[in-house]
Design a protein around this nucleic acid. Structure first.
Length: 421
DNA sequence: TCTGGGGTCCTAGGACCC
DNA sequence: TCTGGGGTCCTAGGACCC
């Protein structure tokens, strides 16, 4: 049996941990640039505000209900996520961290599954005040279904176990296909056009036909719904295949210099992420685009792939390569809205290839020393304390985050204060 | 006026090789 | 009129997830 544990309204729950006055009150967390709603409390869901709603469309409704609105604080969420996962590691034999707020757990061989699951939930609630739900079933896809039920229906008290074939069938008969893990908008529409609307109907399909029509992904879904596991628990941390940094600007940018500063800054952030993961990269993709929602303005998107002469993870040379790429794709006359950098071909530091012109890797020693010094200073005094000059003084592109909560758990300066009367 | 960011996997088709 | 076959690798694009 496989369990899926999932935090309820995770980002909102993180904000409430340090703002207990917001329990049972409407709360939302916004995306980057305060653009969209990406986490909603139950009170917000009850108002009918959908996931990813643009803030400007729901602002009035939020005001009417005096909702608390937070900019995203990913340092806080990542830190609390790590704490949740460490509790799970202590309580479950095998854990696969699936996302910032979800993990698959191995429940095979456990005597009283229900009791164990409730104990896990209680521990997380006691240590971190974060509410969770757990779904348990023979496969990952069915565990997702069970988790969905546990969240939607209070009678499960946070834990839904699907084990008996008859129970599974009864549940799948009313479970809409669009709620199945792995079925998105496009495939749901195609399945419906074929007259398949429930999970039970999908379960009855011929796997070979599904493979022909919906690739091996569709075939696996059918098996998984039938209780035959195709997606196994993977407790080992998987190596990353790509790392990216992309952001929309707070205001449209028309000048090359302004976009260049943003790209340089993203390159710095990317370099930091690479070092954090003990990786280097040999391939970058730089991209820029105009605002896709602004239909009146001329639209432009372009990207360029850059093969680096040697594997890198230092700020200065990644900035240089990124700007070189930007120069190739930047066209004047457009209002740019967003830029991004992706590092592909990630190489562990332990397996670095040296070049003909730098056989001992000496050329990079200086750049690496500088990067290490930057990391130390910025770790101690906060990100962005010192940065490369290419990132510029203007920061006119920098994202809006007007309603961000303090970094309660990751910054000495922002530790919460407690007063005793 | 204002619409996120960071990932994964799969396939088809082209380039290339022998 | 006839113009090989089989294999690998790479990339772009599509679909999905949270």
């Amino acid at each position: 049996m496989i369990g899926l544990i999932d935090a309820n309204n995770f980002y909102v729950s993180c904000e409430r941990l340090f703002r207990p006055d917001l329990q049972a009150k409407p709360v939302v967390v916004l995306s980057n640039n305060d653009g969209c709603v990406i986490s909603r409390s139950n009170e917000i869901k009850a108002l009918g505000i959908p996931m990813a709603a643009p803030l400007f469309q729901v602002q009035d409704l939020l005001d009417q209900h005096q909702a608390s609105v937070f900019s995203s604080n990913f340092a806080l969420y990542a830190d609390l996520s790590a704490r949740v996962m460490s509790i799970l590691e202590a309580l479950a034999p095998r854990v696969e961290v699936y996302s910032i707020d979800e993990a698959f757990l191995d429940f095979s061989g456990i005597q009283d599954i229900s009791k164990t699951a409730q104990h896990i939930r209680e521990q997380i609630a006691a240590c971190l005040c974060i509410p969770t739900c757990i779904g348990i079933a023979p496969t990952k896809t069915l565990a997702k279904v069970a988790n969905h039920l546990a969240k939607k229906n209070p009678r499960y008290k946070g834990v839904c176990i699907l084990e008996k074939a008859s129970d599974i069938e009864a549940v799948l008969e009313t479970f809409p296909i669009e709620d199945i893990w792995g079925i998105g908008r496009r495939i749901a529409a195609r399945l419906k056009a074929l007259g398949i609307t429930t999970a039970e109907e999908l379960k009855q399909m011929d796997p070979r036909w599904m493979r022909q029509t919906f690739t091996v992904v569709g075939e696996r879904l059918v098996y998984e719904l039938n209780g035959i596991s195709c997606l196994h628990l993977e407790p080992e941390i998987q190596a990353l295949h790509s790392i990216q940094v992309s952001r929309s600007f707070s205001t449209p940018l028309t000048q090359f210099d302004a976009v260049r500063e943003a790209v340089a800054s993203y390159a710095t952030r990317l370099a930091g992420k690479l070092r954090q993961h003990h990786l280097k990269t040999t391939t970058l993709v730089i991209s820029v685009c105009t605002n896709r929602f602004q239909v009146r303005n001329r639209r432009y998107y372009n990207s360029i792939l850059i093969n680096l002469p040697t594997a890198l993870n230092d700020d200065s040379r990644l900035i240089a390569a990124s700007i070189q790429g930007l120069e190739a794709i930047f066209k004047t006359g457009f209002a740019y809205h967003k830029a991004g950098i992706v590092a592909l071909e990630l190489i562990p530091l332990t397996a670095i290839q040296l070049t003909l012109f730098d056989p001992k890797g000496e050329g990079s020693a200086k750049a690496q020393q500088i990067s290490r010094a930057l990391d130390k200073i910025n770790q101690r005094y906060g990100r962005g304390t010192v940065h490369m000059a290419a990132c510029g003084p203007r920061l006119s592109w920098r994202d809006k985050k007007s309603r961000k909560s303090p970094s309660y758990t990751t910054s000495w300066r922002q530790l919460p204060k407690v007063f005793a009367k």
